[in-house]
């Protein structure tokens, strides 16, 4: 979506146009959900945060600063909600996340074997991500999943660009190490991605 087109939709949604608001949601919900799912490891948490973040954004559209990217604003709000949720439910979010993830992606027609492979691959990746400290995980997700530039990540996380790079390098190294020490899952990942 072009930025000018997005700005037009934002203005219309701010004036109460429900269709414009729906267009904005449909355009951004996938990436925001992926971000929250990778961060939390729990689909239910990701859904709740995505919903609440969008509701907050839509009810405050008149405050949006058009100098910045809408996605940055949306992600910032979602991130705050996520941090608040972690603070409230730390034990539940920091543990038991990988096993609780039951993918909703598989269609009923898909072969059971393919479904299991897909789930194993995602579990492995998610497990590797959850071994990272939150800052490293977030930097890796924003950089490699959402293609955010380092400067933007630094502003989003309010940290120097050097620190962002340091988190990125350490995060990649830990991801690689995790998959090395879990050869079966690493092989499964490699096979499934081959």
């Amino acid at each position: 979506m072009l930025r000018s087109e997005e700005h037009k939709l934002i203005r219309e949604a701010a004036r109460g146009d429900q269709e414009a608001a729906a267009s904005i949601i449909r355009h951004h919900q996938q990436s925001l959900y992926a971000y929250m799912l990778r961060m939390s490891g729990r689909p239910d948490v990701a859904e709740d945060i995505v919903q609440e973040a969008f509701v907050r954004v839509l009810t405050n559209l008149d405050r949006f600063d058009f100098r910045y990217r809408f996605s940055t604003w949306l992600f910032t709000i979602a991130r705050r909600l996520y941090l608040n949720a972690i603070a409230k439910h730390r034990p539940a979010y920091d543990t038991d996340m990988v096993g609780s993830w039951k993918s909703s992606a598989a269609s009923p027609e898909a072969p059971v074997e393919a479904d299991e492979q897909q789930e194993a691959r995602r579990d492995t990746l998610q497990a590797a991500l959850l071994t990272l400290p939150p800052d490293q995980r977030e930097v890796v997700i924003l950089f490699h999943q959402h293609d955010w530039p380092i400067a933007l990540i630094a502003r989003h996380l309010d940290m120097p660009e050097g620190t962002v790079k340091s988190h990125l390098h350490r995060g990649r190294k830990r991801l690689r190490t995790h998959i090395e020490v879990a050869p079966s899952s690493g092989d499964a990942l490699a096979e499934s991605l081959a």
Binding site: I25, Q29, Q30, Y33, A34, Q51, V55, L58, L175, L189
Partner: peptide, 22 residues
């Protein structure tokens, strides 16, 4: 691993829920 990270997970369509809530 990084390529797998790029693959977006299937996301539910929350549009109606969000609009209803908003």
């Amino acid at each position: 691993v990084l390529a797998a990270l790029r693959a977006p997970p299937e996301a539910p369509d929350l549009t109606d829920r969000i609009l209803h809530s908003a």
